[in-house]
Design a binder for these strands. Sequence first.
DNA 1: AATCCGCATTTCGGATACAAAGTTAAGCGA
DNA 2: TCGCTTAACTTTGTATCCGAAATGCGGATT
Lengths: 251, 251
Amino acid sequence: MGSSTEHVLAVVRRQILAGDRSPGDKISEVGVAADLDVSRTPARTALAALEAEGLIEKRDGRGFTIKSISVADVEKAIQVRAVLEGLAARTLAENGMSPETETLLRGSIAMSQEILETEAPEIDYIGRYQEANRVFHETIMQRCGNELVGHAFERIALLPMTALGTLAFDQTTLERQRMRLTVGHSQHVIIMDALLKRDGQRAERMMIEHSNATLNYGQLFVENGDGVACRAQDPAKPCRRGGHGHGAALD
Amino acid sequence: MGSSTEHVLAVVRRQILAGDRSPGDKISEVGVAADLDVSRTPARTALAALEAEGLIEKRDGRGFTIKSISVADVEKAIQVRAVLEGLAARTLAENGMSPETETLLRGSIAMSQEILETEAPEIDYIGRYQEANRVFHETIMQRCGNELVGHAFERIALLPMTALGTLAFDQTTLERQRMRLTVGHSQHVIIMDALLKRDGQRAERMMIEHSNATLNYGQLFVENGDGVACRAQDPAKPCRRGGHGHGAALD
DNA sequence: AATCCGCATTTCGGATACAAAGTTAAGCGA
DNA sequence: TCGCTTAACTTTGTATCCGAAATGCGGATT
């Protein structure tokens, strides 16, 4: 049963993530209530949830605003994710995997490998790889035996993480993207090996490196200097999210 | 001006943490609304917040229940806290402290040292040490330059952390408590040294050790074997929170 | 002309009302 | 006695209404 609150939450979240609502824009209960033709009550609930997710922030007396996000924010989110995923990997290695977990991880790796081994990849191979990648990380997070890790991660940095998805694949040639993916895949294999050997420290170290790599390797492969310039500690400089998927992120 | 929602939130949270509401108890909108003589609206908001804090959990059609907490849960929470605090310490070391931050940390250390150097301590010296300890950790968390760390921590494990407070100081003699505190203080000093020398890795390693120590050292100093027995991986076994301060935690 | 005071509009938080869905329990019938 | 059905109560989700607080604007006064 799709409740009205969930509907509002999903729609507004998609609007924000898609860029239909720009950073800095005001959002109010009455606004979304009128927009989606619902009462103010579910609108209020949804806005509260959005604030908990970090997508919007509350101004004192004047509604909510779409949170502006800077490259520095993305870096911070990645660092938090890295240590949390590292803990998840270590915990999973120390506790051992269940057969189902092992099946899921092996499946993800097999799919990634198949995609990367294809000589003439279809145009959507990046999307398929991202799916396999998501399975790998989500499986480790959610089945590591410490549900608080996943719980902490869910509540944090939904927006920076999404921005990251559009960020990493911009301004690179297809060949470079393929290289990036290959490197990432190799790290998955190494992490899997550490998990199977119950080597918690190695699993943790590699996972942290792998998670941080999402941004670092992207910078390594960016041809011009924009990435580095954008990396400079300038929290005030907003990194606008592209409104159409692969937009002008990391400008 | 305390809004009604905040009031309900504070009262119910205190009730749960104080043990006035036992784990497994049902809690509903109408119940707290009638209890505190407010409408269902703030009661619902408060309950949603409590769920986000992890103090209660929602059952399908049967209201909320106070979350049972096991020693395993406390361990999980501590591990998450450890990596988050480790990240905070590393970040702070790498970015450098502001003068105000340094003042706060030095103040905390000075206060701890003064307390520990007192030969005949007053009876409340543990409370005062805990305050200094709180300042130390909170300062690093909140002023490390990555607000997402603190944000992640706030949302997680309020209950396990409070349980920890009552847990660590039970069933130990005054002399052993003093030893524990001295060890913790020495670690604070070492972390402070690493921070000043901008040694991020050392700061992170020591902070992780220090955070994990909260439980480990407590076990080391427990005389009888109950602590170890309780540590066994038995998530089903609830660790009831004592209703009167230093109750029968870690039974 | 500038500043201050006051009113109106906007917006949020809380309360009550209403409707739907699910669970439990009790009663009835086989 | 057991099972099924129904009815009532609990719980939840949504809508509408009202009050309070804040901001912005406009007018009046110095």
